[in-house]
Design a protein around this nucleic acid. Sequence first.
DNA 1: TGCTCGATGGAACTCAGTACCGTATCATTG
DNA 2: CAATGATACGGTACTGAGTTCCATCGAGCA
Lengths: 228, 228
Amino acid sequence: MSKPPARMRLADAAFALFDERGYEQTTVDDIAERAGVGRTTFFRHYGSKEAVIFPDHDRMLDLIRDRLATSSHSTALVAVSDAVRLVLLHYVDEGDLARRRYALTSKVAALRDREIASVARYQRLFREFISDWMGDPTESASLRAELMAAAVVAAHNHVLRRWLRGESADPVAEVDEAMREVLALFPPRQSQQVSGEGGTTVVAFRSGQDLDALLPSLRRLIEGGPEQ
Amino acid sequence: MSKPPARMRLADAAFALFDERGYEQTTVDDIAERAGVGRTTFFRHYGSKEAVIFPDHDRMLDLIRDRLATSSHSTALVAVSDAVRLVLLHYVDEGDLARRRYALTSKVAALRDREIASVARYQRLFREFISDWMGDPTESASLRAELMAAAVVAAHNHVLRRWLRGESADPVAEVDEAMREVLALFPPRQSQQVSGEGGTTVVAFRSGQDLDALLPSLRRLIEGGPEQ
DNA sequence: TGCTCGATGGAACTCAGTACCGTATCATTG
DNA sequence: CAATGATACGGTACTGAGTTCCATCGAGCA
């Protein structure tokens, strides 16, 4: 009947106390005492009181990095979707623990802020990866990469929160669908046009005019090359 | 020769000390001492050591709220663009102060996290507004609102950071352009088509054919009504 | 003068987080 | 068996952020 490792006892004690008294009302001393270890040991295992709630963010960042790194130019978007699915699956595997954490982050501003900061790190990884993938130093591509990374992360968070609230029975299917929607927002561009003959790219717009009235400007756009 | 108000002296002292010694190496006592006030007074004016760097976020949130509130259904997107421009202009008006803050948030993780948390609050405002505006309780619309809010905020941050780094001479023009790109990502949906006469909606696609070869299918699309 | 009120300063406190030191356990060496 | 080193732990003392409470000062006012 050996005791479970201190690290886990600390996490259990922390969650239990947070549930009973609330986060701010619980001190690190309380947690250490209930876990039956010294205060020093707590800080050896978790860098801060907040970190006992989010022990895995660094590992998740590595996971994302790895998945993105093992991709070629043509499979970049697949890698992004995979990485997102990986993160979502990690939460789903945590099960009830993830839901208890969600209950805490919903109530405690400090924890919510911490979570948001972590998500921003994910977003940064995606942004850098997408930016490299685009390989286009123009300001327009830079903005596009930023928007895409933001959308990817927002889609993940959206599905994750739905699952955390018990609104989703199949979060993996939902996140795949959401990622399809996100990628559909960013269709491939002219520079990646099918090589060879001069095809036609029609950009999306709405107009009160009918098609015939629009054709002149359409032709001008196509033949005149890039315009303001 | 009356002294400037304590609040401003505290901010000046804080920025000066942060520049000289760095953020972590500066204590609140140091700041209060240089400002010639007591420690208590510091915390009366700024809720925390970090808050002396970001004094205006609450006011900015109110500004956004107000701008969004004074809009009708048809001017919702204009209101969003206006609100974004408002925030950007606030930073630009700060001028050098905003750049010093940027230098700090670039170096100090705690400050970066704080800034990110504030941005998340902006994003939440936009998300709720856009969601209400869509008035569509489906999951698809909910995701769409989330993506749109994320894109709006990402676009603002992108332009703001460019300006902070001195890469943009006309940030207002840039943010307007960026917002146009963002809104172009989210074309109005069928159900919101301009009532009345038959305008033209061109959906985005790419084709290897040239425009003339495409026209028949285009016409069929337009006249045949909604299709998959 | 006596009064309130707002802004201030100071003392004392709680608690997170860090630094340092001593100790117990265990496996590896000779 | 004895010396060694690595690892995990506990305790003490410290710094510094943030809070609470109380005392003070000055301006306006009856």
